[in-house]
Design a protein around this nucleic acid. Structure first.
Lengths: 363, 363
DNA sequence: CACCTCGATGTTTACGTAACCATCGCTCGT
DNA sequence: ACGAGCGATGGTTACGTAAACATCGAGGTG
């Protein structure tokens, strides 16, 4: 429906308003609909918002008039009056990491189900109009709530100033004492990965971590360390990558040089790909010589060579809970704190096996 | 800056307005700033928008008052008055394909540079308030322009009704006769891939395509077919995947069964990963027995085993041109048509080589 | 020296909506 | 039968901003 009013040029009947050069047609307003339907603008408002207290016949008349005129509510006016935008802002540094992207996707889907749209809040992008000496336009973000996918201290330092009073939900951070925090249970995920390798009989497990300033990376490294210590195992030095496959390759070379190493837990699947390649190039077979467990369970993980055993992150659930918390705060005009952890689970594929008795390996 | 006014509760001086339960503090408006600065609201407006015609001393006084009160422009009121939202809507079905995601990222970055934010327009998501018999809230999208990342016929069929009169830019589609279309030069990219393989001495090139309803997939398949025919080569049957590595694996098994096949052009890098694995499992070495060229040049492509030769898509440039066209239309209140193609280039890595003289392969 | 011009600033108004309150007409209870 | 009560609808107003127009004062020109 609505197609017949979609294109004012294509329709048989020419638009009644001036469409001439530059003079925009001035959108159909409630008053127009009210006039055609023979009711007051207020009744149109009630119908438009689905409020009760409008008799069926009147409602039909209004809806017909709306269709006829191609009426569309003016969200600016509505927002001005109601103070609500039906919009959630998502603030992040980059879309180019799988985790951010999938979290965003989940948030958008979940929000849409509640009738909320998503605005991307760009960060640290120098705007051109700064030269005009005016306040930055990006400060006026028309959002009812904000979901930040970043470490809290980065959020604090960010150049955006959040709308005061707007609820904030944070992903990928601690600080549950200040905001509502939703996150994957990084430590538990790491534990699942490490325990799986220990159960297979590996003496210890190496770790290729993400960048040091990432809270997710820290959480996974902590979980790895804690699990090893809890089992009384030796804790090898941490190797830090930057989430990229390329950095995984570099760390993989380091791992390959450690002839003792029979098992590696890699903090994300992209780096795991690089580790696999490095091991392969160095003649160390996966999983015969070295077992690998990744993190994320990206769609491609099942197509690695060999298919990657990895910790599955439930991004959809993270998104759902973010939106749920944000909207709860918006609707009750309250402020939530505390941390919600979303469970992970291990997906066992072919990159892990018991350690072999390879005579090459010393001691 | 702004931190001192960020939290009305924390400050020493209690807010002069009622902050009680539910009664929100009513934001600082231009009138408030004007009163404090001792000027008219209009002058505040001029300063806020960076308009000329305000003397330096007055401007300073206003800016000081703004800072003092923690003033933030009300975008709803601004949009209501000006009719502009400084917002671009991006409409797409899913974020879960690399191409969509990277295009979105590029658009967001490019838009931010111009002071525009991005709203994600979800498609075909059933909303809860449909039960209320009201118009869907998602129809009121507050955007000045729309970028659609999808085939045009899908856009037409989509459940969203675009704001009438708003400029539309389309990616991944033909229909330059109706809209402004920006896209990667799929055919040329395919040509580069196929020509590279032919130049290496391969007799012909097989093709693992994307889904049939994708315009990008069609464009790449057409480019492949045209290049082969142009060189008088045999055109093998097209194999269709769905962009996923898993589907690439399935098609890879089919390719591996074709003992004649020495070269494959795969329509994206994820599927190429699957093809690699299938060939590997079937004992056909890459690139010795079969050469592979992918499409996209995702960051992981260099970490495949072997590193993948692929066609690089310049997503950033696509995003830039989308935003440029959209904003040009917004600012001049015009309607652009025509197609802009963004060049691709071949990135040669290790998955391609001249065909070997493997005796297994018949004549 | 009166007048004109132009730059700086103020005043008025309308943008489209929804909350609030008023009004109107009907039904139900006694 | 008549008023209370209630459901349906209308009238008024304010949300915060920016365009259009008005005003005011200073400096230049004849």
């Amino acid at each position: 429906m609505g197609a017949e009013a979609e294109d004012t040029h294509a329709d048989g009947a020419p638009d009644t308003r001036a469409v001439g050069s530059g003079g925009r047609p001035r959108r159909v307003s409630m008053a127009d609909v009210a006039r055609v339907a023979g009711v007051s603008p207020q009744t149109v408002s009630r119908v438009s918002n689905g409020y009760p207290g409008v008799v069926e016949s009147t409602r039909d008349r209004v809806l017909t008039a709306m269709r006829e005129l191609g009426y569309r509510p003016n969200s600016a006016a509505r927002a001005l009056k109601s103070g609500r935008f039906r919009m959630i802002g998502v603030i992040l540094f980059t879309l180019s990491t799988t985790g951010n992207m999938r979290t965003l996707d989940a948030i958008a889907t979940s929000a849409a189900r509640e009738g909320y749209a998503i605005t991307l809040i760009p960060v640290a992008v120098p705007t051109q109009d700064s030269v005009r000496g005016a306040f930055t336009r990006l400060g006026e973000l028309a959002v009812d709530a904000v979901v930040a996918i970043m470490e809290v201290h980065l959020l604090d330092a960010a150049t955006v100033s959040l709308p005061p009073g707007a609820p904030v939900v944070v992903v990928d951070s601690k600080a549950g004492d200040r905001y509502s925090v939703v996150d994957t249970d990084q430590a538990e995920g790491a534990r699942q990965a490490v325990q799986h390798l220990l159960d297979l009989g590996h003496r210890t497990v190496w770790h290729v971590a993400g960048p040091e300033d990432s809270f997710a990376a820290q959480g996974r490294a902590d979980g790895w360390r804690t699990t090893l210590k809890g089992s009384g195992r030796e804790v090898p030095p941490v190797l830090h990558g930057d989430w990229s496959a390329e950095s995984g390759y570099e760390m993989g070379l380091r791992v390959a040089a450690e002839r003792d190493c029979t098992a590696v837990f890699v903090a994300n699947d992209q780096m795991a790909l690089g580790v696999q390649r490095a091991l392969h190039e160095q003649g160390r077979a996966v999983p015969r010589d070295v077992s690998i467990v990744g993190f994320d369970d990206i769609p491609e993980a099942g197509s690695y060579m060999p298919p990657l055993t990895t910790v599955h992150q439930d991004f959809d659930e993270v998104g759902r809970r973010c939106v749920a918390s944000a909207l709860r705060q918006v609707q009750t005009d309250s402020h939530e704190r505390g941390t919600t952890l979303v469970p992970t689970w291990l997906v066992v594929r072919n990159s892990t096996a018991p350690p072999s008795d390879d005579p090459l390996r010393g001691s």
